[in-house]
């Protein structure tokens, strides 16, 4: 008599991958890159080696050059991001909650939304001058739209039965917004905030390349013009780390605020 065993045919669905797998990919790319450069297959003018970028970066950090450019950038993106997201959340809640605001405001939002925001920079420079204000404004505007649109759909997705329950237990309109609609749309708001983080970084660099004496964006452009590719790549590295840190920070705040998820 032969035995025919039944095996789990969907085992591949919950296959466990070791943690080092994700590091493996990044390390592999870096090693190949380093080898290509050390074999002089590509000129360092076009592609500097990772080791050269890191050492140059370290020296630039010690000389204070990175900090000198990083601080104005952080200042611009920080202020622009906070203003854009706060206004975006408030406006999004209003548009989602009040039928009047929805009818009047939503068409306005959706008609401005498709404009690539960087196209408005010359206009803002004209209006607000070449200083910090025009850069902060363009970043706020770029952040505002993804946040407002996500907040709006977050509000629309709050289960009406929760609003009914809150009203049944005595909530007025303000408390319905504060205790039900705001926490209920928070997951969507965070999705918007993460989307906006990328947009804000893009606008920061673009604005600094067009009109700034300091900032990581202007540093990258400056070394590009001088064809000092290694220092250019240091700028790119700083931007990528900035984006990474930004995302991690938002993830951390989200985990703190949404323990019920």
């Amino acid at each position: 008599m032969t035995k025919k065993m039944i095996t789990n045919r969907v085992a591949f669905l919950d296959k466990k991958i070791p943690i080092y797998a994700s590091i493996l990919g990044v390390a592999g790319v870096l090693i190949v890159w380093e080898i290509i450069c050390s074999l002089h297959i590509v000129s360092p003018l076009f592609l500097p080696a990772p080791s050269a970028i890191v050492t140059t970066g370290w020296n630039m950090l010690l000389s204070g050059e990175i900090l000198k450019n990083l601080i104005p950038s952080l200042y611009r993106i920080g202020i622009g991001y906070v203003i854009g997201s706060v206004v975006g959340i408030v406006v999004g809640l209003l548009l989602g909650f009040s039928k009047w605001a929805d009818a009047i405001g939503t068409p306005i939002v959706y008609s401005i939304y498709p404009i690539p925001k960087i196209a408005l920079l010359p206009l803002f420079v004209l209006w607000l001058g070449i200083g910090e204000l025009s850069k902060v404004t363009i970043i706020s505007l770029g952040v505002f739209f993804p946040v407002v649109i996500n907040t709006y759909s977050g509000v629309k997705n709050v289960d009406p039965i929760l609003i009914k329950a809150a009203v049944t237990f005595g909530s007025n309109h303000l408390n319905v917004i504060r205790k039900v609609i705001l926490p209920g749309s928070l997951p969507m708001i965070f999705a918007g905030l993460k989307l906006a983080a990328g947009t804000s970084l893009l606008l920061l660099v673009a604005a600094e390349m067009i009109a700034a004496q300091s900032g990581i964006g202007s540093m990258v452009l400056h070394y590009g013009n001088l064809m000092i590719t290694t220092k250019l790549m240091v700028g790119v590295l700083v931007l990528s780390l900035l984006g990474l840190a930004f995302n991690r920070f938002l993830q951390w705040v989200e985990n703190r605020l949404l323990p019920w998820k």
Binding site: L162, K164, A165, V180, W260
Partner: peptide, 10 residues
């Protein structure tokens, strides 16, 4: 409520 309708964040 039939749907229970608890606030999930509370």
């Amino acid at each position: 409520f039939q749907e229970i309708a608890l606030l999930p964040w509370r």
